[in-house]
Structures are given as structure tokens and as C-alpha cells.
Design a protein around this nucleic acid. Sequence first.
DNA 1: TAGAATATTAAACAGTGTTTAATTAATTTT
DNA 2: AAAATTAATTAAACACTGTTTAATATTCTA
Lengths: 203, 203
Amino acid sequence: MGITDRKEREKEELKETILKAAKTLFLEKGVEKTSMRNIADRIEYSPGIIYHYFKDKNEIFHALHQEGFKALGEKMEILSVIRDPLERLKVMGKIYVKFAMENPDMYDLMFIKEAPLCHVFDSEKEEWIEGGGAFNSLRMTIEESLAQGYFPGHESESLAYMVWSVVHGLVSLHIRKRCEVIDLTRRENIVDEGLDAFFKLLG
Amino acid sequence: MGITDRKEREKEELKETILKAAKTLFLEKGVEKTSMRNIADRIEYSPGIIYHYFKDKNEIFHALHQEGFKALGEKMEILSVIRDPLERLKVMGKIYVKFAMENPDMYDLMFIKEAPLCHVFDSEKEEWIEGGGAFNSLRMTIEESLAQGYFPGHESESLAYMVWSVVHGLVSLHIRKRCEVIDLTRRENIVDEGLDAFFKLLG
DNA sequence: TAGAATATTAAACAGTGTTTAATTAATTTT
DNA sequence: AAAATTAATTAAACACTGTTTAATATTCTA
């Protein structure tokens, strides 16, 4: 046996090839401006073949979406060695912002683009799996901070959402080119400086 | 005379009609999913006519974009009666968030959507006119706050960008449906609660 | 009323995502 | 090994998209 396994593997291979080509093009020219024919051209197959491996364009998008979360999750792994929850929260923010600035198109894919496709699989549960996990670890860090006396008078859920909003706001305004209100001389550092200002506020 | 004026007015009228139809459709089904033929159908004209009044689809988008900033600007007018700059900053945030939540599609148009069209007119200056004015009044309020001793150790530009990021983050995560990580029971109020948490942090 | 200018349209172009039926290639069965 | 079956792949079509063109209808001017 193993024959059907090999067949399976070979099928996976073309699927990987499609995904890789799609990723390159998506991050190069954007999702909307990448056509199925573009992807097909790049892998030197006919457009139709893509539909044997993916239901539609959205499913390709979704696959890359998950890839992005895996990559971000891996970068977050080092957090486990940081004992102080406030310190951990800050490093978390730094990593998040760094990821977004280094992979703006992937970040766009993950957090900015319209997302009628996240609950493709569990549409009944009304939940967003990848994001839910990431948000949970943020909330837990904040709960730990509260337990240690940081942020008196605050409450974890709203605080967590607010913290996430700060980092998301910082990077998404930049990615979607709303930073042009800032002096050219300061524009390239404004995201990091904004993050520092927030940390200063946190204490 | 006045004849050419009337002609001018009549021309403006159809332009207004197109704009109104486009606005309805854009806010109803989104910009991308509204076609020129959709707009033409709605006003009972042929698609081609639109190109006699607008260069292309982007120019329609841009016109609505400006409309949105005018509306937001008007809502901000009451700020002038608030003396205390910190209080003014908070009300500013409240108005901003309220506007975004009441006009999510317009907000999307103004602050989230890809914007290769903002510097359509002054591409050389690399500036974003409408946004620049709004950001300036935010920065001035913060400068006033700094002068009165609020936010010691902070600096206006980065602080202003951070404050803007908070409100933008709060509403844009909600508009782009990333709030599904939040408990359903709290989801509808999380934006306001996040804003309150930020104000609490400001002092 | 004839001629010029303008407003409006129908038709076409090149592109899109997706589906279909036909074709080629590989595998299994006889 | 040859025939039958199954899977992989394609070419062609469908109904759309934004935009341009040349032709038509309308209005204004002289």
C-alpha cells in the first residue's frame, strides 16, 4: 500500500503550488487585483484546475489567512518566558506591531480586509477561531495583570479589547495610508512612537 | 444671461442624482459590489452617461469621501464651547466613535478602504487634505492639554496619533467584524466600554 | 429653419470568477 | 497486454465587471 498515500501527497503538492503562487500574487498586487487566471498563468496550468483543489477564490484567501495566524502565533511563543504580566503585555504589543509592519499585506489579509469568510466552517457558532485563540491569550495576560494590582478599577474584557484596538489602530492607519497627516520626517517612526506613548500611559 | 447658469444647474442636477444613487448603493452593498451598470439602472440612464459627469468610479468614491468628512466636521463643531482640553478630547472621541458606529459604511469609506485616491488632486504634496485638517484639531487639543499639565512626559504628535489609533482601532475592528472574539452578550457594547477604559487610563 | 453643439445611448473591448462538457492521462479490471 | 474505468486537465462558454467608441437623439444658436 502507500500508493493511495503517494497519490494523496501528489495532490497536496499541486495544492501547495497553487497556494504558493496565490500568496505571492496576493501579497504582490493585492487579493482583489489578483485573478484566477493570473494564478493559473503563474503555475502554468489552466484556470479551471484551481477549482479542483479550492472551492473558490475565498477558500484560497482563507487558507493563507490561517497561515498568517500560524506565523504570528509562532512569534508569540517567546512570551512564555516573561514572568511579569505587564512586561509580557508590552512585549506582546511590540511583537504584534513588528509583525504587522514587516508583513503589511499579510496583516491586511488577517485583520483589515472584509471577512465574510472567517466563519466559513463554523457559521453556526458565530465565532472566529484563529482570532479567538489569540485574543484569549491577551485577555489572560491582562487578567493576570489585574490580579497583581495593575490597572486598578479596570475590567479584563474591555481593557483587552482596548489594548488590541490601540495596536490595531496604530498599524492599520499606517497600512491603509492614513499616516499622511503626519510630518514626513516623523512618518516612518510614528507607529513605534505611538506604541511607546501608550506604554508610557500604561505605567 | 442666466441661461448658461441654468444649464450649469441642470448639469449639476444629474450629477447630484448620480451621486445620490451611488451613495445609496455603495452604503447598501459596498463599493466593490456596486457596478456602474447598477448605478445607471437605478437612475434609469445608460451606463455611459456617468462618464460625462465623473472621470471614473474612483471619482464618485472620492466625492462621497469628502461628503463624509463634511458631515463629521459638522458634528465636531460643538467642541468649541468646551473649555477644558481634556474634556474636549474625550467628547471628541465620543463623537468620533458615535459617528463611526452610526455610519459604519461611510466610516469604512473614509478611514478603512484602500485609498490610492486621496491625493488625487495634490499628488505632489503627498498630503491628505480632509484628514489633515481633522488631525490638526486633535493635535491642537492635545497640545493645549500638555500646556495645562496633562500627560506629563508626553509629546503631542505621537500622543495624537496614538489617541486617534485607539478610536480608529475600536471602531474598525468592529466594522470589519473582528469582534466575534468577544462574548455575544457584551459584543454590542464593547466599543463604548473600550473607549471608557481608555478614558479611565487617561485620568 | 439650417447648422453647430451637447446630451445620451448602444455596442464593443478586454477583463473578471465560475461552470460545463470534452479531452487527455493514469489506473484498474478483464 | 488490451479494454474499461476513473481521475486529471483543459478549452470554451456564461454572466458579469469598468471603460471607451462611434453613432444617435436632443437642444441651442445663428
